[in-house]
Design a binder for these strands. Structure first.
Lengths: 221, 221, 221, 221
DNA sequence: CATGAATGAGGTTTCATTCAT
DNA sequence: TATGAATGAAACCTCATTCAT
């Protein structure tokens, strides 16, 4: 179990598997940092605390990460990529056309997939959400590398289904924002704000999809 | 302008106007703290920085607020109350029945009102969102004082309009969550995430209301 | 009771009654200071604490005593005088000759008298003992004003009773030190170190006197 | 000389010699702290002053002692043990019976031994005397760990020599208190109150012993 | 590569003292 | 005279970072 976790973490933190392996201590450092950053916030976490929880000497942290902020960036940067990975596939366009006949199907697929991702990565996502606004490096990375790519892809999808007649005729940005609000609203509530609730995910996903499609007004015969 | 700001801030920070006035220096301290907390986060802000920006001696801060955390709480607590004030009016039920014939009207009113509130209080709301997860005092206040009151009120409204036949038959909690996602999603994007955009608020509100009512599917004749 | 205390305190703190009266607030300040200095030590006591306990504003303390150390000196100086007052009476010599036929009588009188004094002034004496070593002003006052006067008087008494044949032939300084050790040892134990014990003072005084006279060896027929 | 001092200090501060060595800096910190605490009192001493005199960074103090009070306790605790060590030997009873035929011999041995100890440790003893009353941790340690052990031992000795007929029949506690007053009175005067005097220790010890045995009354043929 | 003692800048907080009211 | 808000120096302590081992 712990092994699996380590493998997964280490895979998460490298963008492609060609890159150099993390040492055992590095993994422990990252695990400890993620846990404490998520609990207390980056600024309120001391490197000595991380070292202690990781079971390494304080100096060891700085052998692997030049500064404390470096450590943060090493944690947040990969999650940003993974967060939007499904929308950045090179052959995304084809996938879409072949795989999702209806917008509903696409919505369902996205919600399921990103919910699973959210549940696996809740602490790191929490860190990301809290720290992006306070660190220009992260902000610019987010605004310049992540947002445009995703926006572009989603815009095409929306336009595709608008041309289709399946989606309402409205600025794609607005359509995206409203759809995203519902999806993100659920995932954050589910994974970060209220994870201790007992959730029936399939049901909630279905309702969200129906809501996005038809709103809150009862469907008339 | 500055005067107006001071008046408004001082009114915001007292729950009822009978309470004693804040001194001039106190207001400056709060203003400075709000600004820097919003910019860098509570933990990354030093009291000396606040003192400098407020134009007071560092000791003066601690004459008015026993600790730095006290200062944070003095800022965040009142905003939580004001944030949900419209839902906690004693005669809310009547207001609802008499004022909003349709759910749409209610949505529009809420969005306009809370958007205005968000634009006035963006920095404090940003602070609140960032710090609630890290401060048990704030968390418990939020979960115990704020959430239940609002949830109760909204639940009644939803049930009212469900009985009415205007709203879909679905667990009120879920209905609320989805509606709230759209509204909050817009307000946060508008006021905090992307305030520098040029927004056509009336148009966006109208679209959001329509989305909440009918979803993204084109309305059929 | 409180009134009596005030009167007594105010009388203690003036060397002669011709001097100006203390105001009501001054008395409260001194009372509070004595209490807290005795409990926590001079350095560890803050003027704000004193002000609070005295029920006056912080500024008021500094209206009456230029500095915190001034306040300490105003408390300790008079007690030093009073502590040795019995040995500094102008007509002490006569008193001695007429009043105490035997050294024993003198010992008993001194012990009773200074014990009573110690019980009345325990907190101030404690302050004096703790602070004299750390404040040159107090030290010099003690070494120059107090010690020589008392030493001189006691020396004469010892010499008087040595001439008498009642006291052993030994350097008067040494005789004094040993006698004083026993008396002071009892009074400090009784009043400051272990006041909560139940003590039978008359008995202990008698034993101490007998010890000073005859030591610990059983008296032989 | 300095080396010897260091060795001795480091031996004093460990209760048993198996425990880990103090670092060079730690010793310097303790030495500096002892010196300044003795001169100005604990509360009036700043950690920066200690650091400066010790020739280390202020932070270094806090790497070795979590708080300033920790540093005090690390200084005072061992001296309390050493102070009473001679009375807490496991085979003390035998030692007594075999070594000291008469009470006088015991007195002389104790006075010599503890005087030597007092001269070596004057500053630390001064600190101990001043700080015990103000620090509950020290107080309880003293009252619970130190006092009872010594009292018990001394009581037995007194009873032993009372049974012997060498000592007067009086409550052992009182006998002890009076004897101790004389011994402690001398040692404190000699080592702390008036060390700059030129003292003839052997003579004074002899006189004190004679005083304790026979009091101040001339011995009659 | 790993360690952890050492650093010194900077953090929050306290405090004696001043001064306008 | 009495007040208490304001001060700023200095208190204790933490921290990210370095470097000799």
């Amino acid at each position: 179990m712990a092994d699996e976790m380590e493998q997964w973490l280490s895979s998460l933190l490298r963008l492609n598997d060609e890159e150099e392996k993390m040492t055992d201590k590095q993994i422990k450092i990252i695990q400890a940092a993620v846990e404490i950053f998520a609990e207390k916030g980056y600024s309120a976490t001391s490197t000595s605390e991380i070292a202690q929880k990781a079971g390494v000497a304080e100096g060891t942290i700085f052998r692997h990460y030049k500064t404390k902020k470096d450590l943060l960036i090493s944690i947040v940067t990969p999650i940003m990529s993974k967060l939007v990975a499904p929308f950045v596939l090179r052959d995304f366009h084809k996938v879409l056309e072949s795989e999702y006949e209806h917008f509903e199907d696409f919505l369902r697929a996205v919600m399921r997939n990103r919910l699973e991702f959210g549940m696996k990565n809740a602490p790191i996502i929490k860190i990301m959400l809290h720290e992006i606004p306070f660190h220009p490096e992260l902000q610019s990375q987010f605004r310049e590398q992540i947002v445009p790519k995703v926006a572009q892809r989603l815009e095409r999808i929306v336009e595709h289904f608008q041309a289709n007649g399946e989606l309402i005729d409205m600025p794609p940005m607005t359509v995206m924002r409203m759809g995203a609000s519902v999806i993100i609203g659920y995932i954050l509530t589910r994974c970060i704000i209220n994870p201790e609730n007992s959730w029936n995910d399939e049901e909630e996903i279905e309702r969200a999809v129906q809501f996005i499609m038809h709103g809150l007004t009862p469907v008339r015969g």
